[in-house]
């Protein structure tokens, strides 16, 4: 793979991370991070939708009438999200119940519109597809990191498997109930941003 294309995939993981740098798509992200499994499924769904919506819009980019551009983009995104939602309901029913309305909210996930406008409208389909996948991964990465921290410290398990041994509990260790409540998701992301910017000082805001 050409190095330019590789960059499209890798940049969103750190320097151009959609959540911690571009401030996109936080809306639907945090509510699904109590456990790792829903977070993984959510990350995967978003990656699929960003990849394919970028691909479709980039293939159509020269034919789309400028006046109805936004509507066409929304229709493509919404259609993809509906298909993903139907698939989740059919094949991973228990997770789809946990995600509830947040699957639908992928539609208004700013990453999608943001990448379509900023990238897919001006680039070839294959590059756009990679850009979409890269951004989906960058988003998913933060989601998974946050959910691992929350599930490990909040329930002492990962993907449902108990990790913290029973003897710890007997010695007085307690799960931190705060971690499963919404505010800790925000604070966890804040701390991740802090760590990332300490390492990568050019991202610091003035």
């Amino acid at each position: 793979m050409a190095s330019k294309n590789l960059k499209l995939l890798i940049n969103p993981l750190n320097n151009e991370n959609p959540i911690t740098v571009q401030v996109l798509g936080i809306c639907s992200a945090l509510a699904v991070t109590v456990q790792v499994k829903p977070a993984l499924i959510m990350a995967l769904s978003v990656t699929v939708v960003t990849g394919f919506s970028n691909l479709i819009i980039a293939s159509l980019r020269n034919t789309i009438p400028p006046r109805i551009r936004i509507i066409v983009q929304l229709v493509v995104i919404a259609a993809l999200v509906i298909i993903v939602d139907q698939l989740l309901k059919a094949y991973v029913y228990d997770v789809s119940k946990k995600l509830s309305v947040f699957v639908g909210l992928i539609i208004t996930n700013c990453i999608l519109m943001g990448r379509l406008e900023a990238f897919a409208m001006a680039n070839k389909p294959w590059e756009s597809f990679l850009d979409g996948i890269g951004n989906g991964f960058g988003y998913g990465m933060i989601l998974v990191v946050v959910s691992v921290l929350r599930e490990l410290f909040g329930s002492g398990s990962l993907l449902g498997f108990q990790l913290i041994p029973q003897s710890f509990y007997e010695a007085g260790y307690k799960d931190n109930g705060m971690m499963i409540l919404p505010p800790m998701a925000l604070i966890t992301v804040g701390i991740i941003i802090w760590i990332q910017r300490t390492k990568n000082r050019k991202l610091i805001e003035k």
Partner: peptide, 30 residues
Amino acid sequence: NVQSNSYTFVYSSIIVVVVATLLALAATAL
């Protein structure tokens, strides 16, 4: 001319039909 009214109209109709068919198919199949 991608700017013309008739083009915009035809384009949106095609999109609507294609998307609606796809979704109806997916929903019925699943």
